[in-house]
Simulated scan of single mutants.
Amino acid sequence: MNIWNTTSDFILLGLFNYTEAHLFLFVMILTIAFSSLVGNALMILLIHQDFQLHTPMYFLLSQLSLMDMMLISTIVPKMAADYLSGKKSISPAGCGLQIFFFITLEGSECFLLASMSYDRYVAVCHPLRYPVLMSWQLCLRMTVGSWSLGAADGLMQAAATLSFPFCGAHEINHFFCEAPTLVRLACADTFVFEYVMYICCVLMLLVPFSLILISYSLILAVVLQMRSREARKKAFATCSSHLTVVGLFYGAAIFIYMRPKSYRSANHDKVVSAFYTIFTPVLNPIIYSLRNSEVKGALRKCMGQCATINHE
């Protein structure tokens, strides 16, 4: 058997062919990716500039926007360069970096969304004790913990994946280096690694998701007991944005990583991966801005300041 180790380049087959329809889709994805970068950067700027948004809730939201910007920057530039140049090779080091950053950002976002659900639980269920139960110190610890757990998982999976010898067929049927896709090319017994990787994915997805479900079950119980219709409406509006983001993120991630092998299709995986690496990041700032009066107020204030500067 022709053994090809990690001293040679991988070939990314990509997401698109060179047809008019695929060219249109490629331009659309570039437009969405650019919109995502602008929208998330604007969200970070608004949170930084407006003192009314200097709260743990919006700090966590700024970290979510930062993760989405980094995710887009990890995937899209390489995909676009490969499509435009026709050169689809990627070095083992570049592949390892993509795996590391991708898993780090996805894992960190799992735990960050759980932290955001705890923040909403405290805000709705214990509003008077919010400064104590959701202090800045705890907020920073949760943020650092989210990044650290994601980075640890990313480093482990990237190093383990590239430690295998690879066969002569070194083509990756994907538009970026993803550990499960790359492992299929290995010329070694990967059962133990795949089993451990599956357990890691389950833990990284289900543990935070369980915490989110518990938080929102408690929130729902409290909201239903509120006598004020206005208070119930405000609580639902505050939490619905986060629940929408959670549903989009976890729905796609669970579909990719928790399906049995027999139900997996490379084309389906690529489409779903494109959804949660490119489309979901552009939805997050839209969801949070359209359904959040404080963010809309900060945006109006920022636009007013810009208009004033232009008139001077």
Score class of each variant (00 low, 15 high):
residue 96 G to T: 06
residue 233 K to V: 00
residue 79 M to Q: 15
residue 205 L to W: 02
residue 1 M to W: 12
residue 297 G to P: 01
residue 259 R to S: 02
residue 101 F to H: 09
residue 40 N to E: 10
residue 84 L to F: 13
residue 158 A to N: 04
residue 139 C to N: 12
residue 71 L to S: 09
residue 269 D to G: 03
residue 181 T to N: 08
residue 210 S to G: 10
residue 112 L to P: 01
residue 219 I to R: 01
residue 180 P to T: 09
residue 170 H to Y: 06
residue 129 R to I: 04
residue 108 S to C: 14
residue 74 T to A: 04
residue 135 S to N: 13
residue 8 S to K: 11
residue 136 W to S: 09
residue 70 M to D: 06
residue 273 S to H: 05
residue 64 L to W: 05
residue 98 Q to A: 06
residue 282 V to P: 01
residue 80 A to Y: 10
residue 126 H to I: 07
residue 62 S to L: 07
residue 196 V to N: 03
residue 8 S to N: 09
residue 113 L to V: 11
residue 91 S to D: 05
residue 310 N to T: 12
residue 167 C to V: 10
residue 255 F to L: 11
residue 13 L to W: 06
residue 53 L to A: 05
residue 296 K to V: 00
residue 162 L to K: 02
residue 267 N to D: 15
residue 182 L to T: 06
residue 175 F to P: 00
residue 128 L to K: 14
residue 152 A to H: 06
residue 206 L to C: 15
residue 25 L to E: 12
residue 76 V to H: 03
residue 308 T to V: 07
residue 168 G to Y: 03
residue 69 M to K: 12
residue 86 G to P: 04
residue 141 R to P: 00
residue 201 C to A: 11
residue 173 N to V: 01
residue 246 V to H: 05
residue 246 V to S: 11
residue 229 R to E: 14
residue 291 R to A: 09
residue 230 E to F: 06
residue 241 S to K: 08
residue 275 F to N: 04
residue 81 A to T: 15
residue 112 L to N: 04
residue 62 S to G: 09
residue 12 L to C: 13
residue 10 F to Y: 11
residue 149 L to V: 15
residue 290 L to Y: 14
residue 41 A to M: 12
residue 179 A to M: 10
residue 102 F to V: 06
residue 222 V to H: 15
residue 181 T to R: 07
residue 117 S to P: 02
residue 252 A to R: 05
residue 21 A to W: 13
residue 302 C to D: 08
residue 70 M to V: 14
residue 143 T to D: 03
residue 239 C to V: 04
residue 78 K to A: 13
residue 124 V to D: 01
residue 81 A to L: 15
residue 113 L to H: 03
residue 80 A to C: 15
residue 230 E to A: 11
residue 77 P to R: 14
residue 299 L to A: 12
residue 167 C to K: 08
residue 141 R to D: 01
residue 146 S to W: 02
residue 249 F to P: 08
residue 109 E to A: 13
residue 72 I to N: 04
residue 192 V to Q: 15
residue 173 N to G: 06
residue 139 C to L: 09
residue 27 V to Q: 14
residue 178 E to Y: 06
residue 49 Q to G: 00
residue 205 L to M: 14
residue 6 T to V: 15
residue 296 K to Y: 01
residue 246 V to Y: 01
residue 167 C to A: 10
residue 159 A to Y: 11
residue 99 I to R: 03
residue 39 G to N: 06
residue 74 T to I: 07
residue 213 L to R: 05
residue 101 F to S: 08
residue 137 Q to E: 06
residue 187 C to S: 14
residue 161 T to H: 03
residue 241 S to V: 07
residue 113 L to Q: 01
residue 130 Y to I: 12
residue 240 S to P: 04
residue 268 H to V: 13
residue 74 T to P: 01
residue 275 F to V: 15
residue 200 C to V: 13
residue 174 H to L: 08
residue 85 S to W: 10
residue 72 I to P: 00
residue 107 G to Q: 04
residue 209 F to I: 14
residue 11 I to Q: 13
residue 238 T to H: 00
residue 88 K to P: 01
residue 181 T to Q: 10
residue 201 C to R: 09
residue 226 M to P: 01
residue 301 K to Q: 11
residue 231 A to C: 07
residue 67 M to K: 12
